[in-house]
Design a protein around this nucleic acid. Sequence first.
DNA 1: AATGAATGAGAATTCATTCAT
DNA 2: AATGAATGAATTCTCATTCAT
Lengths: 200, 200, 200, 200
Amino acid sequence: MIEYALNYCLAMARPKSEDKRNAILAAAIQVIAELGASAPTAKIAQRAGVAEGTLFTYFSTKDELFNQLYLEIKTEMHEAMLSTYPRDAALKERARHIFTGYVAWGVRHPAKRKTIAQLGVSERVTAESRAEGMRMFAEFGALLDESIAAGALRDLPQQFVASIMAALADTTMEFVGREPERAQRYTDSGFEAFWNAITH
Amino acid sequence: MIEYALNYCLAMARPKSEDKRNAILAAAIQVIAELGASAPTAKIAQRAGVAEGTLFTYFSTKDELFNQLYLEIKTEMHEAMLSTYPRDAALKERARHIFTGYVAWGVRHPAKRKTIAQLGVSERVTAESRAEGMRMFAEFGALLDESIAAGALRDLPQQFVASIMAALADTTMEFVGREPERAQRYTDSGFEAFWNAITH
Amino acid sequence: MIEYALNYCLAMARPKSEDKRNAILAAAIQVIAELGASAPTAKIAQRAGVAEGTLFTYFSTKDELFNQLYLEIKTEMHEAMLSTYPRDAALKERARHIFTGYVAWGVRHPAKRKTIAQLGVSERVTAESRAEGMRMFAEFGALLDESIAAGALRDLPQQFVASIMAALADTTMEFVGREPERAQRYTDSGFEAFWNAITH
Amino acid sequence: MIEYALNYCLAMARPKSEDKRNAILAAAIQVIAELGASAPTAKIAQRAGVAEGTLFTYFSTKDELFNQLYLEIKTEMHEAMLSTYPRDAALKERARHIFTGYVAWGVRHPAKRKTIAQLGVSERVTAESRAEGMRMFAEFGALLDESIAAGALRDLPQQFVASIMAALADTTMEFVGREPERAQRYTDSGFEAFWNAITH
DNA sequence: AATGAATGAGAATTCATTCAT
DNA sequence: AATGAATGAATTCTCATTCAT
């Protein structure tokens, strides 16, 4: 009530709602997962429960929506890998934590995973967005430097190691998605494969 | 003169030309590599040097073109991996041959690689095409059974191993693409990583 | 403090501000001069420093804004032609005064001139507005009746003479706009042409 | 029949039809005269009896359509003024011919006249088109050089004279349009006014 | 009164596919 | 078989206007 009066005086209109923005991003994830990067904005808006035009008050173009979505998902992936990171565990356990966190996230969010796969090859996602997305993951390469030191990949860029991790984790996710009942087995094996790949 | 040409034309039913079909496929590779899977058929036809409508006498729909292209490239990849396959070499050398052949092919044909990446996530490529594409590669899993027997991946499907190989090779290609002067280094390391991943 | 502001706001019904109305009209002139009659209301509001919605508390529709603007400018033009009108001068001098005043106004206010040109052919400006705008100028025809009496235009409607004056003055303005350094020359010649046109 | 066979051999498809192009231009004239320069392409296509998309095979953008239309009408106006031009008549008669030809054209083609008025202030018509349009009319200034030599407009650019002619003729047209029964009277008077304007 | 988010009906193009030639 | 004009549904984005705050 008082808020209304305040708004009245300050002459503020409805503020842009974070909820709506999130609804649009969430809808985009679903629709892109279903239809690919050619998903029409109209369908995204509809799924989000907003008018077609509203989408454009939150994202000025389709490209902007896609780039923001790309970074949003990448950030979430990153967080999933770092949450409850065991700082003091042995190196291998820390690595396992990251790998496992990523796989678990991907399995839990199949639509997001498909969407990232689509956006990853979409011409709409700019080089800048890609670079920013990559920066997050490069850090894991650094994290693993110790383990790499003696292995086959020594003196190759950390990014190479990070990409290998991502590639193996993605493959793992896919098979977990197909046979969820063997999730544990795939995840363990995927990680061991990765660990062997980089440490020997 | 004109009459002669007329007779010539009316007399012979022009057969579909294998050349034209190939020109369209080759054009599609280029255009899809440049524009993604949303590449218009008109642009593909133009690049192929044929009329818009002609494309549709060789491929009844865009989807058909894309699916055939997908399989054509997959087949070519497959052949690249098997050419000069050293039947009697030691297991690891045979595996290296396959891995290296694939990477070399990808580096030599960047447009094809980009196109396969695009088609790989395109809604136009059917599950059947994907399955058929995968079948070719599954055989390499079988090939490696021996080596897997004692490693981390024992009793996981051969497809898992094949996918891991593909994933690591793709990653390798990408980095070779970025730093061609270190091609040898990346390829060797990529293969060692793969070998370690599956044999330990 | 906040409470005070609150009371202040609740106590007084804010009156529509003449300033704001004028700001909107002034902004419309600029934006229409730049973008033509398709100028969006949002841009006009922005230029005026008010919210999109505010524009509609001062002008219920875009059409109303455009019609009022049309008449406002026409009125201003009219005033420019009559200011310091030398009632007792000779006929030709009075005519010159009007012609010159109009040209000078147009040269001094190029955006207004462009805007009037746009509104003059816009479907948004109603026949009524046009009629009202024309009425003002018809009076100049009456003023010139004497001079017409013997000329080529005798027994044609005063409006015809008024339109001829407007047409010649507009042409004059345009050339003064292009070559401001010859302003005097163009204005004098334009008027002489007009005077000769109607008096011979 | 033989043509078909020939086409068949040369593999020509339906050629772009001049008729259709003209139908689109004619439709544009009508619709722009009715709705102004904001006339939608969809409405123009419909009026022309072609599909919405067809319009764009003849004119790649709306701007191109508008610019070509502008020049087409200007050219036609120009021709109307020169047709049956009496090379050997006295100067005034030649001038009258031009003036009268233009007015008659404008009266006969009111939609074209309205359309040119709209396009003349439209942002879509480029400076190049305008310049080209103006070039045609500048020549009439040259034509009148003799008559100007002694008048009020001596040593002003021919373009100024040409613009004055256009302005007076436009005014004349408008009044003829309103009172067609006095067409002759207006045309004669308009021309006399013009002649007096430039020769005295 | 003032704000600006929300709306949805257009608007200009694009494009896979058809079909007359 | 080859051509490319013709089609119209679909797409992204704009904009006048409304309305909750």
